[in-house]
Design a protein around this nucleic acid. Sequence first.
DNA 1: ACAATTGTATTAAGACTTTTAATACATTAT
DNA 2: ATAATGTATTAAAAGTCTTAATACAATTGT
Lengths: 137, 137
Amino acid sequence: MALWIQILPGSSEPIYVQVAEQISKAIARGELASGDKLPAVRKLAAELVINPNTVARAYSRLEQAGLVTTKTGSGTYVSDPKLRRHDAADINILTDRMDTLITRGLNLGLEEQDIIAMFKGRLAKFVNKKAERRKND
Amino acid sequence: MALWIQILPGSSEPIYVQVAEQISKAIARGELASGDKLPAVRKLAAELVINPNTVARAYSRLEQAGLVTTKTGSGTYVSDPKLRRHDAADINILTDRMDTLITRGLNLGLEEQDIIAMFKGRLAKFVNKKAERRKND
DNA sequence: ACAATTGTATTAAGACTTTTAATACATTAT
DNA sequence: ATAATGTATTAAAAGTCTTAATACAATTGT
């Protein structure tokens, strides 16, 4: 299992956000499962040729989101999905982001059905990857 | 028709993004239709108690997205939806954002059906508002 | 016990972005 | 003409992002 994380130099997204986001996606796709260990802060920093502080910030962000738990001296591990909680605030943020996304789609001239079809298509890829992974375990 | 735009002081989003985003949503919902005139740069700046440059930057962003056209000396107007084009790059950005959104939802512990239902619900509100507006015209 | 590895914290500096401010200019409307 | 429009420029203040160089605390492996 090599390293999938790739930082885009031209992106307006801060590096620590890019790293956290890509790890989040790996978790959502099931490529990283509960208990899996993330690369050590210094090791990942060396591979990506960025500062260890930047990786630490990404990990801190993941921990705040409840996706990983860290044990100083041991490492950073993907947390148990069953323990992940969401409250009303989380849902509000999610629906706000949905509205932003829908705004973009409609203003690009896309039709309601097209947008839904696209969304379902993307979502299916996540779930399929998870199913494949369960099969191979 | 008073002013709907509200800037959140605590937000990490730049003010010019907040302004552009809210106008985009108004257009997507049909609250602003083709030909409608946006508030003058200086006027909106005065109402929001921000710098005119910041509003100008928001308008510039909307023009770059093809949502408005500006005529110096006259004003800024919502452009014709039929003229709005999208290319492959636009779709790529949209699907990337969808993936980010889906990642959030799944990692909050939401089920596939819940996420789709939420998304459809939000989208329906946009389309319904447009339908209502057509009725009242 | 010891050494290596882990995450964390601090301080500093440079680069970049955001916002305000103060003008000035060009075009359009009245 | 006069007023109102969008645009452009220059400057400064405040904040964010990233790197750098350390140092500390806790765990792991021997």
